[in-house]
Design a protein around this nucleic acid. Structure first.
Lengths: 203, 203
DNA sequence: CCTTGCATGACACTCAGTGTCAACTGCGGC
DNA sequence: GCCGCAGTTGACACTGAGTGTCATGCAAGG
């Protein structure tokens, strides 16, 4: 691998790579928003960023990946946020606060773009499938993060449920937020969703 | 499982169609179990059932569909079961009992085949994605069914959470059941999962 | 007997995704 | 400077999923 010059920052090559990836992602989202997902070919996405089709696939594993990768960034930050919460906090609170933090940071601060992205994802079956898959995998990661907080090697079933519930609340909240065009306080919506979720089984 | 109640009002053509579909499904599952999902082409699936590639796609929308269609049958029955529960029952109980009923009926009675199917689905990314998508859509259906039970036109957010929680418990339970090769009482596993789920947010 | 409707197979086509190879790019060592 | 090295890229070819179209065959019903 890279054992040569590893300066505190990133290699030139690495930064270049990130630049291409960003450009590819931006161009793709712009084009997809205008043309629709299914109506746009990978050739067009590649051309929009000025690279070859083959290069596109060197940066994104699939056409869906361009859209979904934005989602998985949020997932990674959710786990990071969760690990940064004080260890004394009960799991349910930790998840809620972590979800709130990433929501405000990622969605509320990019209202228009996020709303378009969420809508697109929910409407296109292929994207919805990939999104659901990511969330599924994320549940395992979140459960694992919760287990680490409790000094456990393996997450208990209950932690799996806590993770699932948290993501469910996240999901419902985000969907609701997108439905009102993002014209609502994201933090409040998250809090309400978690409050509702807590009551759902007391029915 | 595939002995379906056939109302006497079915055309010959319709029964023939069902026959072809069953044959296609059975042959596909056999072949996929032996060769693996990604290693098997649609041509092979079609040939195994003695039809053309084109005909395969007239019965299943995609390669994933052959596997997932078995799952969606379970989903439909879950909704039906839910609607058959007494209206006085609280939502949480109704879901639990409906889930228990379909689990026992569909999985426990076809242990070996079901375990193989679940394992396959969880291991293959493409299948996992489609499965997650189906479950997502099913959540809406279950929420709608719950709403109908309460004489509501639209499901409340809380009913959405109840549906999500129920399916989450279903999911965790089935996964666990498959992990122990189906050597466990499905009804008990479901009950335990729901009990755990109820406590998850009391942490 | 004929016709109408349906299922099928054959064929062609688009497009996603992958493997391979040759050309080009800095970038450090000699 | 020159060389080699590692990484990026584009060109090309190939597999395989999924779709549109059309001609054929076949059963039912007049």
């Amino acid at each position: 691998m890279r054992r040569r010059t590893e300066p505190p920052g990133l290699t030139l090559a690495e930064r270049k790579r990130q630049l291409v990836r960003d450009e590819l992602g931006d161009a793709a989202l712009r084009l997809l928003a205008r043309q629709g997902f299914e109506e746009t070919t990978v050739d067009q996405l590649a051309a929009a960023a000025g690279v070859s089709r083959r290069t596109f696939f060197r940066y994104f594993a699939s056409k869906e990946d361009v859209v979904i990768s934005f989602v998985s960034v949020v997932g990674e930050e959710l786990v990071a946020e969760l690990e940064a919460r004080p260890a004394a906090e009960p799991p349910a609170v930790a998840i809620r606060e972590a979800v709130k933090a990433v929501t405000v940071e990622h969605f509320a601060e990019n209202r228009e773009k996020s709303v378009a992205l969420i809508r697109h994802t929910l409407r296109i079956p292929a994207l919805r499938a990939r999104f659901a898959e990511r969330r599924d995998l994320l549940r395992d990661d979140v459960a694992a993060a919760l287990a680490r907080r409790c000094d456990l090697a393996e997450p208990t079933p209950r932690l799996h449920f806590a993770a699932g519930l948290g993501l469910l609340a996240f999901d419902v909240a985000i969907q609701h937020w997108a439905e009102v065009d993002g014209h609502a306080d994201a933090a409040v919506i998250i809090d309400e969703a978690f409050a509702e979720a807590g009551k759902a089984f007391a029915l």
